[in-house]
Structure formats: C-alpha cells, structure tokens
Design a binder for these strands. Structure first.
Lengths: 344, 344
DNA sequence: AGGTTTGCAGAAAACGTTTTCTTAATTATG
DNA sequence: CATAATTAAGAAAACGTTTTCTGCAAACCT
C-alpha cells in the first residue's frame, strides 16, 4: 500500500496526499479531511526511505560511544534517544570499544545510511578516522576535541572545576598522600583529568608523588588492579582520586578485600557520578559530569548545525561544568587532629 | 556522487556498477577491476535508502527493550549489535520503559523505516500493541509469549530449572523461611519467576509463606523498599530470593544499613547474573540467564525468518536454560548444626 | 471590463539504486 | 557451416515519495 493507493481512493493526486501528510497549509481542509480519513482507514504509514531519498534528509543521527556496557553510557543513550524521538529523528548507535577497525566500520555504515550528523562520545579516540565524515560535510560533535572547525562542534568538559574541588576537599580533610588512578592515557579525556589533578595539587602546594599516580583503564577490574599496585608500592596513600567511577568502585572492592575500611582508613573519590555511585557501600563521593546534560548538548549541537540555513564558518563550542558531590566515601585523615587542637 | 558518476568514469553502464558492487559473478574481471578502482578513487559509498527502496529490503532490525539504563540490557544490546553488523544489518534501538505510549511510537517508527523484523525483549509487556506489526507480516521474536504464531517466534525461558536449583541450594543450607521479592507483576516474566519459586518450594515440601512474598519492581530502589517491608513484617526471613539482580543488590544495600551481615545473617540470591553481580560485596549468588545467548537466539530467530523463502506456517520456539551460579552471598543458616552432628 | 495576481491542485520530474528486459557477441551443437 | 544456446553488458523500468512545474479558476486591481 502506497501513496498512490491513498490518492486513488481519496480521488486526489499523490501530490495532494504528500502535502496533506506533511501538513502543507495550501491544501484545502475539505481535501485534507478526505485524505486523512483514507489514511486512517487503511493504516497507511509512509515509507521513510522513499522520503529520505527524494528529500535528501534521512532524519537519522549517528551516535558513537565507547561501550554500551560501561554504565556511564546508557543514560546518555537514553536521553539522546528521547530527545531525538521528540524531533522525529532516529538514531544509529554504535559501541566501538575504542577499536579503530570498529570505528571505521561504524563511520562507513553511517555514511551509507546518509546520517545527517554524528555525535562522537568516545572521549578522545577520534581524530584519525573521521576524515571521511568531515570530507562529506556531515555535521559532527565531539567531546574534548580541539578548536571548532567547519561543521564540527565541540563540547569542552571543564574538568578542572570538579577535580579542583575534589582535591581541595581531600586537602581540607588533611590528606596529603593523595593517589590518582588514571584512565587509559591514549584517551585525551583521561590525560586531561590527570593534568587537572596535577594542576590542582600544585595550586595548593601539595606534591603529587609520581609513585602515587598509576594507570588504570576505566573499568572496575582495572581499578582493582591499579589499587593493588598502589598497595604494593613504597608509599601508602590515604586518599585516592579516580579517573572514573568504575575505577573507584574497583578500588572500594579491592580495599574491602584487603580489610581497608572506607572512609576510615582510606578516602575515595570517583569521577562521572554515574547512578550506581549512590548505591555502593559506602555511597561514593564523585565529581559529577552530568550525563543528561552531555546528551542534550550533543544533540542540540547537531540539530543546530542541521537547521542552520546559512552555514556558520565554524561549529560551536559548548562547555560542560563538573562539580564535586559529597557522599560518604571520604573522611578526615585517620589520626588528624582538628586545626583548633593543633594550634593549642 | 552517485552510481552514474562511477559508471561514466568507468565507461560502463550503471547496471554493471551495481552488479560489481553486489559481486554478481557474471561481470567480467576486467570491468570489475576498472569499476572498483573508480569507486576507490572517488571514495564512493552506495546510498542505502535507494538500495532499500528498490530491493525492498531495508536491512534493519528493530530491537525493543525496557530500559537501557537497567544493567541487564546493555550486554544484550552489545551482542545483538555485533551480530547484526556481521550480517550487514543495522539496528533501531528503543527503550520503552514499558510505557504503552512509547511502545506504540516505537512500533510506528519501525514500520515507517520498514524494518525486516523486530525483537521485543520487554519480558511480557507486548501483546496489545503489536497488532500493527503482525498485520504487516513483520517477523517478530518475543520472550515468554505464548505458542508460536505465523512469523512470530518465541524464546521460552526455562525459569524453573534455575530457580529450583536456587531454592534447593537454600534448603540444603537449612533455610526454611525463604522470602521472594517479585518483579512488577504485570510482567509475565515476573509472574513466571514467582510461580517457579512457589512450585520449587512446594516440590520439596516447604511452605512458601505468603507474608514472605512481596512485590518489587526490578530496580535497586525497589529492592531496598521491598526488603524494608519484609523487615517490618511479622516473620523474619533467613534467606531471600529476588526476581532480578538489581533487586538483590538493593536488598544487600539495605541489609548493610540495617546491620544485617550477608551471608552470616541472611542469604541472598539474585536472578539474571548481570556482570555487576560478581563485583558487589559479597559477590552475589545468582540464577544465570545468559544475556549473550539470549541476544543470539533473538537475532537468529529473526534472521531465520527473513531468509526463509518458503514461509513456515509458524515461528520457531527456542528455549533458554537458566542455571544457578554460586558465589558468596549464601551460607548455612546461622545456628544450624551439620547434619552429621544432628544425627548424633 | 480587461488584464494581472493569487491560490489550489494535478502532472510530471527527480532522488539513486536494483532488476528486468534487450541486444550483441560468443560458444556450443548437429 | 549454419543455427541454436549461452553469456556479458547495456537500456530502461521500477521502487515510493517530494518537489517543481503547469494550468485553471477565482479574486483583485485600475
């Protein structure tokens, strides 16, 4: 059943049916009513591929993430999808596992489906592979990529704000031996978090002991391994800041096994503030990077680019703040006396 | 840039280009080589919507799940997507939150995109809304829906196997006051799990105290609430079996706050065996329902239906087994003596 | 009243492929 | 060697829409 069938039964041309469906105002109410009633009656749904073909608009956005099984991403996907549906867009989702081969295949498939834009939320693994997309003038939005280029927008995460709060929070609790477990350092975002940590330490005159900075991989297991490594090292940290929440949860898991009590013997801070952070024991203090907000920014960046009729010379830069949210995984350094007492 | 451009430059007809791309064997190697080199040179990617339009095959499957933020689903999505890509299919993903309105919109969008099949993994919220799909003869695969119908396959979960193991495991540890926290009972799957529990209890002559069966909602918070309700009740359970892992994790969280030690004071068993179950403290004993396997079954069911040239009168029924996996959240009833001692 | 807008709706072209139909050239057959 | 069968590749139709182009009638101006 197609538009011609509708046209025939409503005794109008296919053009009129098309105009009716698309609510073009020039079609007279009488005809429109007739057309709609036939459409209802036959349960006709227009064929999107035919529409896309002639109109040149697929109404599809691509969404590239690292791993859907990483709890950081599902909420982003959820929000992105919800907004997309509201705007009558469909989304083509791919987890690439940060694997260049899979990224390439994803990009290719998206081009073949003629997506109108792609949000790349892999936090720093893009660059190389996306030439094809740029070449085809597909609007893109990245996280943490350099300065905006034509049709390429950027969401800059203000890591420093939240991480500084975290470091200062620990310092205020008298911690000085503060460890940092990084993410995989080939990710720009992981590098940026590490830099923000180092800088925050320096700002308040604390030495960031290189032996207390170890590399993780943003997974729970990676967090466990990294913490084991810290425990085996020469300096025992009293607090550990992690590049993401899964890492922090790994640390909590491992320290439980090692009989280290949180927050009594060790303070732990995560990053991302995924939902699960509220539910671990004890609830995890974390630097929040709002996932819904990130999804919204990414979608709107694409939409703005698509709907712009005068193409801007460059994409827009958006900024996402980060903020510390206090829970129960941090505490006063064991054995630290209160300042008042110290002064006496 | 389109197929005609390629044809012109390779000095062949568009038909030949099309045949080359689709690896139709009748095209001579010499021509094929010429065509491919032009394709490479120009970086040409075929337009999927044009292909779909004329061939009548969209190479898209729909995947409807309850909530992507529920940790049970991401792994399913992951595996489903991976297999789909291998078969050159794309997937249209929707979380419906079990909301009929969202389900309806999802179905409509999928029909408009002319999906070739839809996997509905909502575990028992389908029925009503899918008439449209059935009407259009779209192959479907459900979980836990009744007997197979034309073009509708079914994955039957063998709940009893795993739940019986769980109940018998608890019984073997001398538990008798075994509570059960259900899922939302409007889900058929939740009902089925509850029934399997009741039956397993009965089989071994244990009374399932109705006061120990409370309704949860398959969320962590729901688990906390349900357990609180149990604690406030007249009978204190020594073990609790949960309709899914998130519920069980909620119970663990709540019992920690209430100073109840697991497994010393309380044994807890989950259902699903999501990855997180291994990482909670203590690691959660759970009834495994393999998510990768489920995803594979669902995809293959659709693929089989699509590739069948003689349409079978009915869809196929697949069965997914469940099995208990032991970890550390279950233990001998406090105060129970060993059987040998008892007999002395 | 005669010409010029304006408004509505149909006819037909276009979108980029696949696929069917045709044709020309080659190979097999008696 | 003539004819039939086979093969390779081009021409053209088809897929289901949107959109441009046309045409006609009604409304508007001097």
């Amino acid at each position: 059943m197609d538009i011609r069938e509708i046209a025939k039964r409503a005794k109008v041309s296919t053009a009129t049916v098309s105009r009716t469906i698309n609510r073009v105002p020039t079609v007279s109410p009488a005809l429109a009513k007739r057309v709609w009633s036939v459409i209802e009656e036959l349960g006709y749904y227009p064929n999107t591929q035919a529409r896309a073909l002639v109109s040149g608009r697929s109404r599809i956005f691509g969404l590239i993430i690292s791993e859907i099984t990483n709890p950081f991403f599902p909420e982003i996907v959820q929000v992105f999808e919800t907004i997309a549906v509201q705007h009558r867009y469909e989304i083509l989702l791919t987890s690439t596992g940060n694997d260049p081969a899979r990224m390439e295949s994803a990009v290719r498939r998206m081009i073949e489906r003629r997506v109108e834009g792609v949000a790349i939320l892999t936090f720093g693994m893009e660059e190389v592979l996306l030439e094809d997309l740029k070449l085809r003038k597909v609007p893109l939005v990245f996280v943490d990529v350099g300065p905006p280029r034509p049709r390429v927008s950027n969401i800059r995460i203000d890591y420093l704000n939240g991480i500084r709060q975290a470091v200062q929070h620990l310092a205020a609790l008298r911690h000085e031996k503060i460890a940092f477990i990084t993410g995989p350092l080939r990710l720009k975002s992981a590098m940026a978090r590490k830099q923000a940590f180092l800088r925050s330490m320096q700002e308040i005159g604390l030495e960031a002991d290189p032996r207390l900075v170890v590399e993780g991989d943003h997974t729970l297991e990676g967090g466990m391994a990294a913490f084991t490594q810290l425990l085996a090292g020469p300096v025992r940290p009293t607090a550990v800041l992690c590049s993401n929440d899964m890492t922090a949860i790994g640390v909590m898991r491992e320290s439980h096994d090692a009989g280290i009590s949180i927050p009594r013997d060790l303070s732990v801070i995560g990053f991302d503030d995924i939902r699960l952070a509220q539910f671990v024991i004890p609830p995890l203090t974390s630097v929040q990077m709002s996932q819904p907000e990130l999804a919204r920014l990414a979608f709107n960046a694409l939409l703005a680019e698509v709907e712009r009729d005068v193409p801007a010379p460059n994409g827009t830069e958006y900024v996402l703040k980060t903020n510390l949210v206090l829970r129960e995984s941090t505490g006063l350094l064991a054995g630290a006396s209160k300042p008042a007492e110290k002064q006496q």
